[in-house]
C-alpha cells in the first residue's frame, strides 16, 4: 500500500500538476484567441531558463528565483503576441497556429544560442526524499508541486468567478463578438490571458526542470500530454484543463501499478500510450470533455 502511495500516486499527482499548469494556459489561449498555441511548451522552457539564470546570478533556491522566470516568460509571450500573433488575428486561425509553430522553433533556437544545448540542473546531486513515520517516502519537490497546484486551483477559481477581468475573460471565451459589442476591451482580456498563461507555464517549466533537468527541449517534449489534458478537460475551460492534467498524469503513472498480479498492469513503456488511449475513449463518449468545452 505504501509502495502505491510513494512510487505511483504521489509522483503521478506531481506529474499531473506539471501537465495541468501547462494545460491551463493552452486551454485559456484557445478559449480567448481561438487557436492552439504550439509554442506553449517553449514558453515553459523560457521560464525555466530565466529562473536558472537567476539561480546562477543571485544564488537563490529555484522556487525563490521563480518570479524572475515568470517575468521573463510573460514578457516574451507579450512581445511575441504583439509582433507575430496580433497582425494575424483577423485571418483564419490556422495562420496563427502555424505562426505559433514558428515561434516555438524561434524560442528553442534562441535558447540554444544563449544557454547552449547541453543539459543543466538547478540543484546538483541526489535529493534525499522526505521520510515520514518510516513509511511515507516522498520527494519534497513533489509535495511542493502538489501544494502549488492546489494554490493555483483556488486562485484561478476566485479569479474567474469574482474579478472583473476574470468575468470578462469568460465572456470573451463564450462569445467574443458579443463581448466586444457590449463594450469589453478585448485587447485587455487578451493581455490578461497571456500573463496568466505565461506565468503558469513558467512555473510548470521550473517544476519539470527541478524534477529532472533543464534542456532546450524541456517544454516541447511535454506539449503532447498538455494538449491531451486541455482537450480531455474540455478545451477553453481552464478548470477543466487543470482536471485533465491531473487525470493524464495519474493515468500515466498508475497504469503500470501491479493492480491484479505481481506484474505491472500495463508495461511501463506504454504508459504514454495508455494516457492517450484513455483520452480518446473518453472523447468518444463525451466529446465536449470533462467540463463541457467548446465543440465545433
Amino acid at each position: 500500500m505504501m509502495e502505491f502511495i510513494n512510487f505511483y500516486l504521489i509522483p503521478g499527482l506531481a506529474l499531473g500538476s506539471i501537465y495541468a499548469l501547462g494545460a491551463i494556459g493552452i486551454s485559456m489561449i484557445f478559449g480567448i484567441l481561438r487557436f492552439a498555441h504550439f509554442a506553449h511548451g517553449d514558453v515553459m522552457t523560457l521560464g525555466a531558463y530565466g529562473t536558472l539564470t537567476a539561480v546562477w546570478t543571485l544564488g537563490l533556491h529555484p522556487l525563490l528565483a521563480l518570479p524572475v522566470g515568470i517575468v521573463f516568460a510573460v514578457l516574451s509571450v507579450l512581445a511575441v503576441d504583439k509582433v507575430f500573433y496580433k497582425p494575424l488575428r483577423e485571418l483564419p486561425t490556422i495562420y496563427t497556429v502555424i505562426a505559433s509553430f514558428g515561434v516555438a522553433l524561434i524560442f528553442r533556437s534562441l535558447i540554444q544560442l544563449v544557454w547552449g544545448s547541453q543539459n543543466e540542473v538547478f540543484i546538483r546531486g541526489v535529493q534525499k526524499p522526505v521520510v515520514l513515520f518510516d513509511l511515507l517516502r516522498v520527494s519534497l519537490l513533489h509535495l511542493e508541486a502538489i501544494a502549488i497546484i492546489v494554490g493555483v486551483a483556488i486562485a484561478l477559481h476566485y479569479f474567474l468567478s469574482r474579478t472583473q477581468t476574470g468575468r470578462s475573460m469568460r465572456a470573451v471565451s463564450d462569445n467574443a463578438e458579443l463581448a466586444r459589442v457590449a463594450g469589453l476591451d478585448t485587447e485587455k482580456v487578451v493581455r490578461a490571458t497571456w500573463i496568466i498563461g505565461g506565468s503558469l507555464a513558467a512555473i510548470a517549466g521550473v517544476l519539470a526542470g527541478l524534477d529532472t533537468n533543464i534542456q532546450p527541449n524541456l517544454g516541447w517534449n511535454l506539449i503532447l500530454p498538455m494538449f491531451a489534458a486541455a482537450i480531455l478537460g474540455g478545451i477553453g475551460k481552464p478548470m477543466g484543463a487543470l482536471l485533465g492534467g491531473m487525470v493524464i498524469g495519474l493515468v500515466e503513472e498508475l497504469s503500470s501499478y501491479p493492480w491484479l498480479t505481481d506484474e505491472p498492469l500495463i508495461n511501463p513503456s506504454y504508459k504514454t500510450a495508455t494516457a492517450f488511449l484513455m483520452m480518446v475513449i473518453l472523447l468518444i463518449f463525451r466529446p465536449q470533455g470533462l467540463l463541457k468545452g467548446r465543440l465545433f
Binding site: 509522483p11 506531481a14 524534477d211 517534449n221 500515466e252 503513472e253 503500470s256
Partner: peptide, 20 residues
Amino acid sequence: FEKHEDKKNSYRSEIATLSK
C-alpha cells in the same frame, strides 16, 4: 529486461517494476 521511452520526466514506475 524492460525497454523505456526516451524524453519522459518520471521513470519511477518503471524502476519500481525493475526492482522486483
